[in-house]
């Protein structure tokens, strides 16, 4: 994954923020996901407009963490979302 890549949430995933955390339902797979606050923030950013580097930048400001930490968290989480087919790479 490159930092310039842009990811987008799958359109058919239903989700809602409940008590600051995203709850997702992948109806096609019959799976329910619940994210923590950092993951929720990343999830919100993945709307097909922000590049991975923008998401990392946003995390460093929002959670006051180091760039390395934000980068590590964002990359591993987006990778995981991608392997679960919850997000797709958006066309640039």
């Amino acid at each position: 994954m490159k930092k310039a890549d842009i990811f987008k949430r799958r359109d058919d995933i239903s989700w809602k923020i409940i008590e600051d955390r995203a709850v997702l339902v992948d109806d096609a797979e019959g799976k329910v996901f619940q994210f923590d606050t950092v993951a929720t923030e990343i999830w919100i950013c993945l709307d097909g407009h922000f590049a991975v580097s923008d998401v990392i930048d946003h995390l460093t400001h929002t959670f006051e963490v180091s760039l390395q930490q934000a980068e590590k968290d964002a990359l591993s989480f987006i990778n995981r979302l991608s392997s679960l087919d919850l997000v797709i790479q958006a066309d640039c």
């Binding site: 239903s14 989700w15 809602k16 409940i18 008590e19 955390r21 709850v23 339902v25 992948d26 109806d27 096609a28 797979e29 019959g30 799976k31 329910v32 619940q34």
Partner: peptide, 25 residues
């Protein structure tokens, strides 16, 4: 599973997920 999104608290989501009744997709 979509009924999870009817919940208004995380506790409610948890209760729905562990409820003994089976799910259908």
């Amino acid at each position: 599973p979509l009924s999870c999104l009817d919940a208004s608290t995380l506790q409610e989501v948890g209760q729905k997920l562990i409820s003994p009744q089976g799910w259908t997709v």
